[in-house]
Simulated scan of single mutants.
Amino acid sequence: MQCDYYDAGVCRSCTLMGRPYDAQMHDLQHAVATVLAPHVAESCWTAPAYGPESHFRNKAKLVVGGTRTAPTFGILGGDGTGVDLRDCGLYEPGLHDAVHRLARFVIGLGLTPYDVPRRSGELKHLIVTHSPDGEIMVRFVMRSPGQLRRLRDALPDLLDAVPGTRVVSVNLLPEHRAALEGDQEVFLTDEETLPMRVNGIRLHLRPRSFFQTNTTVAGMLYRQAQEWISPAAPSSVLDLFCGVGGFALGAATALCDPGASVRGVEISADAVASARLSAAELPGREALGDIRFQAGDATAALAEGADLVIVNPPRRGIGALARQLEESDVPHILYSSCNAKTLAADLQAMPSLRVTRARLFDMFPQTRHHEVLLWLER
């Protein structure tokens, strides 16, 4: 992949830019397998899963800089001024189009970008998500609520300017700090979720919901999980760190057993609400057994036990939960990790559980970031 921004030296976020993609994949597989070698035999690995090396991102997190009449949408330079990246080659075509349309809307509305060095202005970030069905979620991260009425009044114009827009919200971040968003979200539209259709399942995203930024490879990840789960035929599944329910709902459809029990546990109440909505919409819901989602602590939920435990934790890994799993009688674990080093530490704490299948998923071409899926058996 070639990138004008990288070649000009204005953005170096893609650290592997310019390296042939097959070489990137070879190096990434080797690096991850080396870190996990004490716990994952070479014979366990399936060929890596990957999609296009460009135009794959479904989400843009844009720092808004510059001036009211000439704003920038991208990142901040070393001096705190804005660097425009509207034509980033990582964006899906629909997202690329939406970013350009939104930029024109912001300029026409006359919103003042937040000036980091001077600590003045209003619009800090623009966060845009694009779904496989061409729908859009737009979030304006503002310094204060002073522009809420203005944005509400302009909503019809925004909906006309960006076809497919389903959710529009304003996030308030009054503090001067290095953060993407604040604690308060104000919806301008009646709709509050963006459906992301993956493998026939509509996953509902709210503004702060986590979802993989590569929809194509996320679909591969969930399909692989289903293929490993189905022959094991667990009667009870516990999905810890379940988010909006991608793995749990995939497990329910893979089992297709009215007697099966699938439970998801997640600390975010918003994510749980989204997962419940997606579960209610599953095709053939009555034949998929007992599917429940609850907000709470993942470590406490493990006490109820399960035939299969799914974990998809943040980069820090599962920590103390690894010891609890080791001391439990859970026969199977499906572990999805975005950090091979913390994954290796967690596997070290679970010596009675053996990795029998492993696969690398390249969610982030042009970088060394990775996603790994493991199947463990006691």
Rank of each mutant, 00 (worst) to 15 (best):
N58L: 01
T67D: 06
T67P: 10
L85Q: 08
V64C: 09
V63T: 14
F73A: 09
P117T: 11
Y91M: 13
I136K: 05
K61A: 05
T67L: 08
A103W: 06
P117H: 07
L62K: 03
L109Y: 12
H125G: 05
G51I: 09
I136G: 01
K124L: 03
T81H: 15
G110V: 07
T112W: 01
Y91T: 07
G77Q: 02
K124A: 04
I107E: 03
A60K: 00
R86W: 00
P71N: 12
V83E: 03
A70T: 14
D84F: 01
A98P: 05
R119T: 05
H100W: 02
R104K: 13
G94E: 10
G80T: 04
D87V: 04
A98G: 09
I107K: 13
E122Q: 15
V63H: 11
T81Q: 14
D97S: 15
L76A: 10
D79H: 04
D87P: 02
G66D: 05
T129M: 00
V99S: 08
R57V: 12
L123Y: 06
G80H: 00
G51S: 06
V83H: 02
G78T: 13
N58E: 05
G110C: 09
L111I: 09
V64Q: 03
G89S: 03
L111M: 12
K61Y: 01
P132R: 00
T67M: 10
G134L: 00
F56T: 04
P117Y: 09
V116D: 15
G94S: 07
V63A: 15
G74S: 03
V83M: 04
G89A: 08
L123I: 12
L109H: 12
D115K: 05
T72L: 04
D97T: 15
A60P: 02
Y114K: 11
G89V: 09
L95R: 06
G74W: 01
T112K: 12
G78E: 15
E53G: 15
G78A: 14
H130P: 01
V64F: 06
D115C: 14
H130E: 11
R118D: 14
G65A: 08
Y91N: 11
L85T: 04
E135G: 03
E53T: 03
L102D: 08
K59E: 04
S131F: 00
I75H: 04
G80I: 04
F56N: 00
H96F: 05
E122F: 06
R101D: 02
G65W: 14
H96L: 10
A70E: 15
A103L: 06
Y114L: 14
L85H: 07
I136A: 02
V83L: 09
P113H: 13
F73R: 08
G121C: 14
G65Q: 11
P93H: 08
V116H: 08
G65H: 11
I107D: 00
I127F: 05
A49G: 09
N58P: 03
I127E: 02
T81E: 15
G82W: 10
A70M: 15
T72C: 01
G108K: 01
R68Y: 02
L76R: 10
A60E: 01
V106F: 12
L102G: 10
L62M: 11
Y114P: 10
Y114S: 10
L123F: 13
T81F: 10
P52Q: 14
K61I: 04
G82A: 13
L111W: 13
